[in-house]
Design a protein around this nucleic acid. Sequence first.
DNA 1: GAATAAATAAACAAATTGTTCATTTATTTA
DNA 2: TAAATAAATGAACAATTTGTTTATTTATTC
Lengths: 208, 208
Amino acid sequence: MTKKDKLYQIYEVALRVFAKYGYKKATVEDIAKEMGMTKGNLYLYTKSKKDLYEKTVAHGLLRWQARVRKEMEGQDDIVKRFVIMCTKAFEYLSKDSALRAVLINDPTIFPLSPHEDRFTEINRASMDMLKGILQTGIEQGRFCKIDVDHITQFLFSIYVMFIIKAYVKPEGRSTQAMFDEGLGLILRGLLKNERQAGQPAILIKKRR
Amino acid sequence: MTKKDKLYQIYEVALRVFAKYGYKKATVEDIAKEMGMTKGNLYLYTKSKKDLYEKTVAHGLLRWQARVRKEMEGQDDIVKRFVIMCTKAFEYLSKDSALRAVLINDPTIFPLSPHEDRFTEINRASMDMLKGILQTGIEQGRFCKIDVDHITQFLFSIYVMFIIKAYVKPEGRSTQAMFDEGLGLILRGLLKNERQAGQPAILIKKRR
DNA sequence: GAATAAATAAACAAATTGTTCATTTATTTA
DNA sequence: TAAATAAATGAACAATTTGTTTATTTATTC
């Protein structure tokens, strides 16, 4: 087994342990035990507890990102790609309970203010993905000619807000409907008037 | 507020904290904070962390017992009392998630072997309750003339086994059916042949 | 079988946590 | 009101836990 594989395995295990106990109450021995090794050995793979935590969270965020990327690949219609990206990115945390728990325990992972973001690289990549879609949408004449950079920032901010409202500090059950309606509104703002061109309007799948 | 009330409040809070973190990861400061006091002050009410834990668990067990007692009071038919006692005692933990979590985290609280039992006083009282019902059942000619002491031990042992199987180390979903069928069987063994006397047979409510 | 890598267990320092105590703040009683 | 009692605090201390390092052993590779 290569060192990369082992690290992957460690991050998976560590994510579960941090999810279960939270950063403070989780010990490196908890993680080592769960890995079936001694903590001394675990330190061959990591610099410190803090470092292990940050790497573990990054691992979780990257998996989230990769999952969304993969879901999008199937689609070549750029508008549908946009919708899939939004919906899949939003619903992901409902299925990854470990990462969700870690996020609830440490909301600073996904802050509203970019200057407080410890995972700028990862989130920049997400924004680039979004930006790319907006750009090709415009090139293909499907989206209006918007200010791509600012709209990317705008949409990503909304996305972060939704994640916080839905998973990190959940209040009611209305967030889902809010998301569906909000996405519909944004899409209408984004789309060139395809309805007038006789094409059928894009519809967003509503959930129950 | 009297000292008894404060202690009651402390045990309630401590039970929740021990349920959330487990004995090892819970700190007396966690409990003090949740109580809105300093740990120094908490030590005015308790001898040590271990002592607080044991008292807290005892508190939880006594509430369980009291709840069952109260449920029984409504009934004066001794056979129905018996059935209510069994079913309510068994289903209680499904509603007390805090005590259940503490039990899962520390199975030694409710051991199969009486000589490992740290809460003999409480469990003795439960057995006395059971014994009393058997005795009056016999006196009223509803139950067979069984060896009350040994049958009390026997039934209590089965009860402990069921609690472990259903809540402490749950395996499948069949425990509920097992309980219903088992109770039916035991009741038939216990009852004097009322069916031959023309009386309607006692029926146990089956759950879904 | 030498050389390298991976794992261990013990050791140590730093941090946390259990426990005590002198002092302050609040409450009761005279 | 003032003395007396009780309740709460926060700092201090000791004991334990935990993060981190290192010398040594075990496994793998060449």
